[in-house]
């Protein structure tokens, strides 16, 4: 009968090797992905925040104009 323990060690080498190479590749891919995304597709979160503020200002301006118009119309 062949030595099963030796077989077990072979499994361990192959298994741990695969797990680590997979995860190392994954880490590399994650870093690359984060680099690409931050460079070419920056998070729109702060932009949208600014956009919202602008929107708000525009809305306030519109409302002010409407109220002014209303008041002017009344008088």
């Amino acid at each position: 009968m062949e030595n099963l323990v030796f077989e077990g060690f072979k499994f361990m080498a192959l298994g741990m090797g695969t797990v680590f190479s997979f995860l190392i590749l994954m880490i590399g891919a994650m870093n690359l992905q984060s680099y690409i995304i931050h460079k070419f597709f920056p998070d729109p979160a702060p932009l949208s925040g600014a956009g919202k503020a602008e929107n708000k200002n525009a809305k306030i301006a519109a409302i002010t104009a409407a109220v002014m118009h209303h008041n002017n119309a009344k008088s």
Binding site: V5, G8, F11, M12, G15, M16, L23, M26, I27
Partner: peptide, 16 residues
């Protein structure tokens, strides 16, 4: 992620 890989040693150690 490497830590998550190392912990799999539990699997293969027990196999042996």
């Amino acid at each position: 992620a490497l830590l998550g890989g190392a912990a799999q040693f539990g699997i293969f150690g027990t196999l042996v």
